[in-house]
Computed example of a mutant assay.
Amino acid sequence: MDQPAARPLAHRPVQVSGQLAAGGLVVAGLAWVVRGVWEVRLARAGEPDAGPPDQGNGVHRPLNALENSYHLVTSMGDVLVFLCAALFLSWLWRLRENARALSGDAPKYLGIWVYLGWIVPVVNLWFPRGIVVDAFRAGAPGRKLPGSVDVWWGLWLIGMLSGVGIVCRDSTDQIIGRAYSEVWPLLVSDTAVVGAAVAGAFAVRAVTAVQVERLRGARAAGSQVTGVV
């Protein structure tokens, strides 16, 4: 008797998405390097006699040329980071959906957490990494998690929790004041952010490569079953 043809594996193309996400992370890291360079320039220039830009009680003095350029650098960096985030989330969604198609099991984390997991307090300390790990293990059981994933997440947490890095509630003028008074905490945080971006790019490439390999193997196995009579 003929065996029923295997259903083709439904998947979302992830290779190009992974390349774009990795590239976006590198670009965001470079933007943060430029930001750090400007903070060093501010520290070397020294605080003007008029004091910091944020005078307190809602009073801000006119900015000088260097301070204005720092505002421009941070604004451009914010745009690049936003684009990087969009590319990364697109890749993460595809990774998660492909892992579900490969394993046949429901993901551990609901799809909404692909987006909200980064901004909801407390859960943002582990949900994003958990989504990556869950998708990797579901799609490639038995494979060792790339070490770059843990390096990326560790540096990301340092940059996020430092108070001057990825998630910073201070205004740009207040950060300028910090650069004038004590630039080293800013530079340490900047280093963590850049390191997270670089490690993240390696993590995306490694995780993507494993899933692409598994998808190709699954499609090949499906083709062989389809050809069996």
Rank of each mutant, 00 (worst) to 15 (best):
G222K: 10
H71L: 11
V16A: 14
N64L: 01
M76D: 00
G36C: 13
V73F: 02
I131Q: 12
V133K: 13
G139L: 06
L42A: 00
V149L: 14
V164Y: 15
S171A: 12
A22I: 07
F82R: 00
D2G: 02
Y180G: 05
I175W: 09
P52E: 12
A197W: 00
W32S: 11
L83R: 03
A22Y: 08
Q19S: 10
G139E: 08
R216V: 04
R12S: 09
G18F: 01
V123P: 05
R35N: 15
L145R: 10
K108Q: 11
N124W: 03
G58F: 09
Y109R: 04
V151E: 10
Y115I: 14
R35C: 10
D170E: 12
D2P: 14
P121F: 11
W184A: 10
L145F: 05
F136C: 01
E39W: 08
C84H: 14
A101E: 13
R216E: 13
H71G: 00
L215M: 13
A206N: 07
L83Q: 03
T74C: 05
F136R: 07
A106L: 13
P185N: 06
A43E: 06
R41Y: 01
L92H: 08
S17H: 05
A221T: 10
R143S: 09
A10P: 10
D54I: 06
V79P: 02
G104V: 07
E182L: 11
A106N: 05
M1T: 09
A179C: 03
N98S: 09
R7C: 03
G29M: 04
A135I: 00
K108W: 06
A50I: 01
W156T: 14
Q224C: 07
D190I: 04
R129L: 10
G139N: 04
R214W: 02
P141R: 09
V79R: 05
V194T: 05
E182S: 13
G117H: 06
P107E: 02
A5D: 09
G142Q: 06
Y109M: 02
V40D: 03
H11D: 07
G142C: 04
V16I: 10
A140S: 13
G227W: 04
L87A: 15
C84W: 14
G177P: 02
W184M: 10
V59G: 00
V167S: 15
G51R: 06
A86G: 06
E47I: 09
V164E: 03
L125W: 00
S189D: 06
M160R: 15
N124A: 01
G163P: 04
V188K: 02
V228A: 13
D78K: 12
V26C: 11
R216P: 02
G104R: 10
V132I: 14
S171V: 07
E97R: 15
W32Y: 15
V167D: 12
L30N: 04
V167H: 14
L25W: 02
W156E: 07
P121K: 11
T172W: 09
K144Y: 01
Q174F: 13
G104A: 09
V34W: 13
V114D: 01
S181R: 15
R94V: 01
A196N: 03
S223G: 04
L20D: 03
W93D: 11
C84D: 15
G195D: 07
P8L: 07
Y115L: 15
